[in-house]
Amino acid sequence: MRKAKLSVSDINKSFYMPGENISLQVLEKIDFEIQEGEFVSILGPSGCGKSTFLNILAGFENVDCGNAVCCGESITGPSPERAVVFQSPVLFPWLDVKENIMYGLKQVGKRKKDAEQLASEYLKAVGLEGFGNYYPSQLSGGMQQRVSLIRSLVLGPKVLLMDEPFAALDAQTRYSMQQLLLQLWENNRQTIVFITHDVEEALLLSDRICIMSRRPGRIIEEISVPFERPRTISLAGSEDFSILKSRILGKLLT
């Protein structure tokens, strides 16, 4: 059996609400594992604690109890080994595209020349060749999100954490981003935890889907996604896809 890249066991998380003087339990007894090279989606209704869960994996939030371990080490804070793609691009507006991509490489001590080289390669891979000198404000939302994706990818993270990264994009752009992510994943088999509330997106992209309940969020079911890879958007039209989709929807609505 392969060793889990990242695993959490028995996590509880609540937020203290000073106004009402109560604590709001957001996550309850979460157990979760992801293997090397696996693409796992966390699917759940809005407000069920998906972002909170991802923030714990990223090291932005502490747990009340339980363990979160990445590659044998306890998660105590953020690290480029667990790079994040947020729902909005969160690029540095005072840096141009290339500098944004090189930011992380610089922090981890990469030589400037190598960093530039890597940035160009990745820009090319996502179809943004020639945009290196643009500022984020000069790019569309989809392009910004691609930059946000590759500034994390260039770091060669052990796990890539994505929090509804395409939810804010228009349908057209979302499809092309999903396509791009599939294609990148085929090439490098990056380990990815992908948060979404979109059933089709989860089915299209992942090897496995963890369905979360309403708050307090628990993982109520895990589903293996059987579709062959490489996959394309057209998969969404197939009958097997529809059957699985309605099964998941049923689960989400209970």
């Binding site: 932005f60 690029l91 540095f92």
Partner: peptide
């Protein structure tokens, strides 16, 4: 924006580097 700070942290910046490369430029 706390999100900018988070972005800097997960990209590997130390506390000091967060200050010089995120806080100060964002506060400009």
């Amino acid at each position: 924006s706390p999100m900018l700070v988070r972005a800097g942290r997960m990209l590997g910046a130390s506390e000091l580097r967060i200050f010089t490369t995120v806080i100060i430029p964002a506060a400009m």
